[in-house]
């Protein structure tokens, strides 16, 4: 399990990365290496050129603007976990990250690497879906910004084209106070989720749903928002009936299966975890109101 030969490049600036990407068609970008390196050790991936982003300091940052939380693609997962702004503005991100791998992998793993790899179970991809993320993609000479639905193309597949690099991920921040929940089922702590459900919501003064977002990952090839439910839920009083309705909507997502996990079980988990997540987010919102 040793990687095949490649030519190694370790540029220090974004411009140099983009130039190398333009020059070498058969190349891969190496971010934290927590997914790419195993695939290279197995020789599932054998790029002719490996472009290491670890010296590109300008890709590592967290910026909190009025409406967004922007992450440079090389921001390490551990750095995000420990960032005071994220902890304050986006506590669900901290909860989600506690499920991402283990301390040694979070120390190297980056948000850009995880999202470029786009594993359907990855917690950070779920977070991107939940927060209507925008993705800044750069190539030599130009840049474009895509919304989540344009970015997510399928199983392990994004809109990133050859010669292009994911440069920044912008999450749309919710103004506090809001309720949130992240419910995940994985076989063991730190494993990729079989299913994860995240919820953000606010309630009106009378306790009805004001705004709501629900993202379900691990079930379909890409994380899914329950858009239909989200629209219909506005103005409704949260309770058993509404949680059940959300659960049924989640269960309607067409599920994948693999050697270990059936589509039926994924569907089932989407259903029960959605119920739990919505219930928990409502409770959290209410407990905030009281304080």
């Amino acid at each position: 399990m040793k990687p095949a030969r490649f030519t190694y490049h370790d540029p220090a600036a974004i411009a140099d990365v983009l130039a190398l990407l333009a020059e070498h068609e058969d190349s891969r970008l190496l971010a934290g290496g927590q997914s790419l390196m195993p695939m290279m050790n197995f020789r599932f991936v054998q790029p002719a050129h490996l472009i290491d982003l670890n010296r590109v300091a300008e890709l590592g940052y967290i910026r909190a603007d009025a409406g967004t939380l922007a992450f440079g693609a090389m921001t390490r997962q551990r750095q995000i976990q420990r960032d005071a702004n994220v902890q304050q503005a986006c506590p669900i991100m901290i909860e989600a990250l506690s499920h991402v791998g283990h301390r040694q992998t979070r120390a190297r793993g980056t948000i850009g690497g995880s999202i470029s790899h786009f594993d359907p179970s990855a917690e950070l991809c779920n977070m991107a879906a939940l927060h209507d993320a925008q993705f800044v993609l750069a190539r030599k000479g130009n840049q474009r910004t895509l919304g989540f639905d344009q970015f997510a193309r399928g199983y392990l597949t994004t809109a990133i084209e050859p010669g292009e690099m994911l440069q920044e991920i912008r999450l749309q921040r919710w103004a506090k106070p809001y309720g949130f929940a992240f419910e995940e089922f994985a076989m063991r702590h730190g494993d990729f989720a079989i299913c994860a459900v995240s919820v953000l919501l606010t309630l009106t003064g009378s306790g009805a749903i004001d705004a709501i977002a629900i993202a379900v990952s691990g079930v379909a090839p890409t994380p899914q928002r329950l858009r239909g439910f989200e629209a219909a839920a506005r103005g409704q009083m949260p309770g058993h009936a509404l949680c059940r309705e959300a659960a049924l909507q989640a269960a309607a997502i067409e599920a994948m299966s693999d050697a270990y996990t059936t589509a039926a079980y994924r569907t089932h988990l989407a259903r029960v975890l959605t119920y739990r997540a919505l219930e928990k987010a409502v409770a959290r919102f209410k407990s905030q109101d009281m304080t």
């Binding site: 399990m1 040793k2 290496g33 927590q34 390196m37 195993p38 050790n41 197995f42 283990h102 301390r103 040694q104 992998t105 120390a107 190297r108």
Partner: peptide, 22 residues
């Protein structure tokens, strides 16, 4: 050698990382 078992963990600038994935 695929980043799961942790046996190869070393510290790089103080941070514990998998040495099979670096």
């Amino acid at each position: 050698e695929h980043g799961v078992c942790g046996a190869c963990t070393v510290r790089v600038d103080g941070t514990a990382v998998r040495s099979c994935l670096m």
